[in-house]
Nucleic acid binder design. Structure first.
Lengths: 190, 190
DNA sequence: CGATCATCGGAACACATGTTCCGTTTTGGC
DNA sequence: GCCAAAACGGAACATGTGTTCCGATGATCG
């Protein structure tokens, strides 16, 4: 009865081309990339793009979703002190983000309306909470630091990554270390 | 021959109303305020607005110019160590900025095309350079900190101010202190 | 008070970008 | 190879916002 229709070959191919084109364009030109440019890059009509993704937001969600989810699912590395876990998390996450203009734009933008982004920011606070909790044992964070502070510091670092000239991504670790020196407990110096 | 015409009273009055309305709207609603809203608030036609300020950018320059100039002209307070001078400068500048959404948006935006803004960012680096120089005497900054680092840290703080909920401007000092702990020399603790 | 002309108001235009629609083309089953 | 249905391309539409233009208005001067 409900016969399972196989998708036409061109449909599958076009979707793949669109996703691929959108991924590249967003990574290289940031969030402001417009729909026509993506369609053109994919070698596809604008109508075809819209048949696959009914709105711009659907497309963005599809493309940035992977990265946001990865960020939202990553946890603090276990077995480390609060400060060292944050160091590893921040560095890894920012190195990843730095490869993708759209992701950086997203996390540096004021419009936090996108639901999956909001979830992501929420998650940063959860990470912060975990670090604060961990610090009640190891005392590696200054005692007045809150979960929110940690989320804000991460977003501040994202802003710095956004400002960094293209070649300069090697500086990320330096900036992470500066930030962490700012929130670490005063007696935790090596 | 070239008789100096005195300006009509309504012209002067309208210009004042426009500047006043624009200042309020930009301060309260940020950079995205549109021209029609400003004209309406001023009780003036859109045409009148454009006769006084030929483009949106001219208007923005007029309104944000004061604040940008003040920021660009403020120097590091003399007679203090590098770190304390930066503390005073950062805190004062950010407290000021926090009162004005448009200024925060401007310094948090990626479009650094506006010439007076660019001058302003340039000036932040000059401030940084001055602090680095001062630190060669007092050794209050970590030795690997550059002028650019200081400019970036300021802009990162601006981002945090942008994220702060309306009532929370009292937290600015805390964040400034976190940032400075991140760049201070390791032996300068009180 | 009346004439003149700078100024005003806001409709209309320009332009960029998201989205829809429909005539044309392609696919896949026979 | 033929056909019906599905999908395509891109012109056209919708919308938001900056900008221009011109007939109406009203400030100034004699």
């Amino acid at each position: 009865m409900t016969k399972v229709q196989r998708q036409r070959r061109d449909v599958v191919a076009n979707r793949a081309r669109i996703v691929s084109a959108a991924t590249t364009m967003l990574r290289e030109h940031g969030l402001s990339t417009d729909m026509r440019a993506i369609a053109k890059k994919a070698g596809v009509g604008i109508g075809t793009l819209y048949r696959h993704f009914p709105t711009r937001e659907h497309l963005l969600q599809e493309i940035t979703g992977v990265g946001l989810t990865r960020l939202a699912e990553s946890m603090l590395p276990p077995g480390l002190t609060a400060i060292d876990a944050l160091r590893q998390f921040f560095t890894a996450a920012l190195d990843q983000l730095a490869r993708n203009r759209a992701m950086v734009d997203l996390l540096a933008s004021t419009e936090v309306s996108d639901s999956s982004l909001e979830r992501c920011v929420q998650h940063l606070t959860d990470i912060g909470r975990e670090a604060v909790t961990r610090s009640t044992r190891d005392r590696t964070l200054a005692t007045d630091i809150t979960a929110t502070d940690i989320a804000y510091q991460f977003l501040a670092l994202v802003r710095i990554v956004q400002l960094l000239p293209d070649g300069r991504t090697g500086d990320i670790e330096r900036y992470v270390n500066m930030t962490l020196r700012g929130i670490e407990h005063r007696h935790s110096q090596k």
